[in-house]
Design a protein around this nucleic acid. Sequence first.
RNA 1: GGGCAGUUACCAGAGUGGCCAAAUGGGACUGACUGUAACUCAGUUGUCUUUCGACUUCGGUGGUUCGAAUCCAUCACUGCCCA
Length: 376
Amino acid sequence: MKFELQHTDPKSNARAGKITTDHGEILTPIFMPVGTLGSVKAVHQHELKEDIKAQIILGNTYHLYLRPGIEILEQAGGLHKFNGWDKPILTDSGGFQVYSLSHNRKLKEEGATFRSHIDGSKHTFTPESAVDIQRSIGADIMMAFDECTPGTAEFDYAKKSMELTHRWLDRGIKHFHETEPKYGYSQAFFPIVQGCVYPELRIKSAEYISSKNAEGNAIGGLAVGEPAEKMYEMIEVVNGILPQDKPRYLMGVGTPINLLEAIERGVDMFDCVMPTRNGRNGMLFTRNGTMNMRNKKWENDFSPIDPDGTSYVDKAYSRAYLRHLFIAEELLGLQIASIHNLAFYLWLTGEARRHIINGDFPTWKAMMVKQLGQRL
RNA sequence: GGGCAGUUACCAGAGUGGCCAAAUGGGACUGACUGUAACUCAGUUGUCUUUCGACUUCGGUGGUUCGAAUCCAUCACUGCCCA
């Protein structure tokens, strides 16, 4: 994997760059649709490429390990072959499940033991096994196994948690170097900064992670219960330390405004379930704010879903029709909303990139933040 | 014509003397959702009120009772069965 820093905004820390993987290039800043189980929910590959213009998607180690299982993925020749997506894939390590399935797991020095959310069976993830599984999945970018610390954690817990993540990182890196890709193309390995909402810890973690000289670096443990302002503050602190010449990935974030604020502070990569999950729950993101498609006010609004939208569905269907689909619980509604939201997120990061290159990013960003906060 | 059953909120439907403005489900309306245990979850759904509370309701009318959706009488309507 290579990263080329192409432009740096003179008035902010925003950057435009290019990541090159064996499965193609990624122009940053970039939003990466989440496809936990090897599928971006309710969206076809064709739509992902042609309509949404996704450049890279995510998969999840924990979920793919449970289903279909490593053996099947290896038989298939990796996730790319299995799901037919020939562009880059990034896999989360299962670290987020340490957080989201916290009532179903046990943390030890060795690793984390989970109860499967499917059948209750017991499974253990270690920094090493997370690498092995991601080798089998064949992700272009693999993530270190970490503990995603809750945003509300006390300092002492956050410190211990961060230190555990660092120790796990060393083991993960070691194992990464001791193993080989299984399918003939290269894989990168990103470490993750933790430290909760404590600048002191974030600084320590960012320094530690930077010292590993990885091909890219991630910021984790944000947008997990702390106020947005804290998150922005932490991003600033961390990005002041992470190397300039490596991509920075803010994990699990966020709202369109979160993205712009983070881009302004020097983040290059994002993923979030929000466009897909909220889309399935009837919420649309547009450049003029959000819409709840189940609201009565759309009942007889026969105008296009989003006249400014860039995807096919935006003009092909009316708001009234999309509302009808949601009210009637028709599957097409989930698909239309997911496509629209993802296309909007990709449009947003693409526009951010364009304005960074044009040199007017801060002005454009300020205007967008105002619009995006509205409610239609 | 005779017999039986029934009529409760937007719909279905529980409730058979006070704890009932009335269970439950559906529908409707509103909100939430941030490295996906999520086509999920939460709230509201007689009127007025921010709350407390007040007021009007259980087919109609009249009664019994301290008190009625619940008991009695009667009328109306609906369904099923027999002629």
